[in-house]
Design a protein around this nucleic acid. Structure first.
Lengths: 196, 196
DNA sequence: CCGGTCGACTAACGCTCGTTAGACTCCCCG
DNA sequence: CGGGGAGTCTAACGAGCGTTAGTCGACCGG
């Protein structure tokens, strides 16, 4: 039954999500039309409605799915480590690599949320706040355990987050540095600034 | 003559720019309609065309003007200082304070450029690249003069820029910290990480 | 081999968009 | 006090939007 669905229509649904990810991230949600999205998939606009109730649902699927991946991936990256230093470094590295390699998704989840209605936006922000909490909690743990210089955990979370998220804007896969190299640079940079 | 123009129509032009700054930054360029913009100013949509040739010109005026202000302000902030340490700290503080206090403008110049046509976008990016260059040159000067840990000046410029720009997303004027306090935190953070 | 469902299609609806045309009002300059 | 231009308005245009209705073919389970 599940295999059946995958064989018939779910493959098209996935191609819609992929095409929408590219279009939304490069032109923006409002500037992308359903006819454009359909053409990128190779179908007609009306057929999109066999897969999604409406345009906004496509955006919500991408944004919410991306945030959920970030939260799960961030937790998984930190899990093997105990000390705040290694936990924060792992979290930063995961964040940077994800924002480099999945930068189209990441940009949608960051920039296009304003196009969602209140309830859908709230459902994405809920996951995002949980993810942001990973950074904040780790910073506070480091301050308690090792005297990290954290004058304000929220401000520093935003700062580190901004630095590492911005990667999704400027990173190019054919650039001179691999995502992991950039990730390591930022993790080192942050830890140097934090540790007394 | 100039005073005359200011008295008659230029005041309305300024109110259009102000209203568009709010609307574009909060809803996005494409989601803002000319009728909405006109209503915010207190006129009808057709009257906007007495002040701007078209919608895109309003966006370009805001984006280009903001970038020009950043470039001029950044140069002015650095000018009094000689040493890379003070020059970078002054640049960061200016950048953060500007992005906090003029966050609506700043967000437009950062996020809505994709809505501009190629030539208009290029004219904004030209100014932006010059501004980014201020950071990069200062980082390299610090590396040469004081052995700052700058493994890659471009990556670090993007990182510092992302950290300090993101302020325009989360800063609230009625929040617990003044813009100058946040600016000082970030300048200290960056210099701690850079200095050997 | 047949019935049903899934997913594609064509056609079109109602609406709103950015923009234009043209007339009117008001105020400054001579 | 009269002429002119700047700035507003109403009205409307054509285009394109998201979405819906209804039809048809193809494939899978029984």
């Amino acid at each position: 039954m599940a295999q059946l669905e995958e064989r018939r229509g779910a493959a098209t649904t996935g191609r819609i999500v992929d095409a929408a990810t590219t279009l939304f991230s490069q032109k923006g949600y409002h500037a992308t039309t359903m006819r454009e999205l359909a053409a990128a998939v190779g179908i007609k606009a009306a057929s999109l409605y066999n897969h999604f109730p409406g345009k906004e649902d496509v955006l919500h699927r991408i944004a919410h799915g991306t945030m959920a991946e970030l939260l799960d991936g961030g937790r998984a990256a930190m899990a093997p480590h105990e000390a705040p230093r290694e936990r924060l470094a792992a979290l930063i590295r995961f964040h940077v690599v994800y924002h480099a390699e999945r930068r189209f998704q990441a940009r949608i989840a960051d920039e296009q949320l304003h196009a969602l209605g209140p309830e859908r936006r709230a459902s994405v922000l809920e996951v995002r706040d949980a993810y942001t909490g990973l950074f904040k909690e780790t910073l506070e743990a480091g301050r308690r355990a090792h005297g990290w210089l954290v004058p304000d955990a929220s401000v520093l979370t935003f700062g580190i987050g901004g630095m590492c998220t911005f990667v999704d804007i400027w990173y190019r896969p054919d650039g001179p540095l691999a995502a992991e190299e950039i990730a390591a640079m930022y993790a080192d940079f942050v830890l140097r600034a934090l540790e007394p």
